[in-house]
C-alpha cells in the first residue's frame, strides 16, 4: 500500500541544502497557491512540493508568498490566482490569450484537495473515455462510449502537449446546454501540473470556452486543485457556473483517490493504454522528457 502523506507530514520536509535537490525541473516551475480574491493579512498556510509556504496579501492587495524558512518566494498574479515557485523560473507563466478577450466571464471555482498525485489529477482531466461512467448523463452516457480518432502531439515550437479534433457525445455539455450535442475539445498541457481545455461554446459557435485545471502540488501524493474558467455565457449565474464545475470535479475525486499506485506510473509496463489514451501517452512522454517526475513513479514497484 502506498504511504499516505498528510499536509502536516508534508510540511516539515525540505530538501537538505547540501545536496542537489531532485525534481529541479519542477521546482523551477510556477504553481497556483491561492485565489487573488481571497488574499488576506492572516494568510493561507499551505505547502508547495513538501515545503510549508504562507500566501498572504497586504492592505493594498499585493500578494506575498513566504517559504518555510521565511524566505520570500517569487510571486505573480494571473488568471484569478496567485502563482509562486520554490525555485528560479526561467519562463513566464504560460499564456492563455482568451483571458484577455472581452465578453468572457472568468470563474474562480475554488480549491478542492485530492489525495492523489498532482500528475494523476492532470491526466484524468485529459481523458474523455471516462465521461459515460463517471459523469453519467452530464458529460457522457452509454451507449455513446466510443472515442473517435483524434490527434495528440508534443508541439516542439511551444513545447506543450496538444490534443485536437477530440469529439464526444454529451448529454449536458455545460450549464447552458439544453440537450445532447457532440462536443469538440482541444486539450493543452503548457506546464507539468496545469492543463487548458478548449470546448465547443454553444452560445458562440465561432469561439471556444476555456476551462482550466491548475494543480498545486502539496506533496507527491497530495494536491490542491484550482479549476478556473473563461466562458461566454451571459445567462447562467456565477454561482451556478461554479457549482457545475465543482460537481464535475467532485465526481472525479473519488476516482483519483482510488487509483493504485497513487503516483503516476511512467514505466510503460505498469498500465495499458489504448488509442483513446493518446493524450495521456503524450503527456507521460513529455513529463519523462523534461524530468517532470515529482508525483511520478519511474519503475514498477
Amino acid at each position: 500500500m502506498t504511504a499516505q502523506t498528510t499536509l502536516q507530514q508534508a510540511m516539515p520536509h525540505q530538501a537538505p541544502p547540501h545536496q542537489a535537490p531532485p525534481h529541479q525541473a519542477m521546482i523551477d516551475e510556477w504553481y497556483p497557491v491561492g485565489l487573488v480574491s481571497q488574499l488576506d493579512r492572516s494568510g493561507r498556510h499551505t505547502a508547495l512540493m513538501g515545503e510549508p509556504i504562507v500566501v498572504s496579501g497586504d492592505d493594498a492587495g499585493n500578494p506575498l508568498v513566504t517559504g518555510g524558512n521565511g524566505r520570500i518566494l517569487p510571486v505573480k498574479v494571473r488568471y484569478g490566482h496567485v502563482w509562486s515557485s520554490l525555485g528560479t523560473p526561467t519562463k513566464d507563466i504560460f499564456s492563455i490569450p482568451e483571458a484577455d478577450q472581452p465578453g468572457r466571464r472568468f470563474v474562480d471555482v475554488g480549491v478542492v484537495r485530492v489525495r492523489c498525485s498532482p500528475l494523476r489529477a492532470v491526466e484524468n482531466f485529459l481523458d474523455i473515455a471516462h465521461f459515460p461512467f463517471v459523469h453519467t448523463d452530464v458529460l457522457g452516457a452509454e451507449p455513446h462510449t466510443e472515442v473517435q480518432n483524434y490527434t495528440a502531439e508534443i508541439r516542439a515550437d511551444v513545447d506543450e502537449v496538444w490534443a485536437t479534433q477530440v469529439k464526444f457525445y454529451q448529454p449536458q455539455a455545460s450549464k447552458s446546454a439544453s440537450g445532447g450535442i457532440t462536443t469538440e475539445y482541444m486539450y493543452r498541457v503548457p506546464a507539468p501540473t496545469c492543463s487548458v481545455l478548449y470546448k465547443t461554446c454553444p452560445p458562440r459557435p465561432s469561439e471556444w470556452d476555456v476551462i482550466t485545471l491548475f494543480v498545486q502540488p502539496l506533496a507527491e501524493d497530495l494536491c490542491d486543485v484550482w479549476p478556473w474558467m473563461a466562458l461566454f455565457d451571459d445567462e447562467t449565474s456565477m454561482t451556478d457556473l461554479i457549482h457545475f464545475q465543482q460537481m464535475i470535479f467532485l465526481q472525479d475525486r473519488s476516482i483519483l483517490e482510488n487509483q493504485i499506485p497513487r503516483l503516476l506510473p511512467l514505466d510503460p509496463g505498469m498500465e495499458i493504454p489504448t488509442r483513446a489514451d493518446l493524450t495521456s501517452i503524450a503527456y507521460r512522454r513529455w513529463l519523462k522528457r523534461h524530468d517532470y517526475t515529482y508525483g511520478a513513479q519511474l519503475v514498477a514497484r
Partner: peptide
C-alpha cells in the same frame, strides 16, 4: 486483483 490494468482504478468500486 483489485486493480484495473488500464489506469489502476480499484475494481471493487
Amino acid at each position: 486483483a483489485d486493480r484495473c490494468p488500464h489506469r489502476g482504478m480499484s475494481l471493487s468500486h
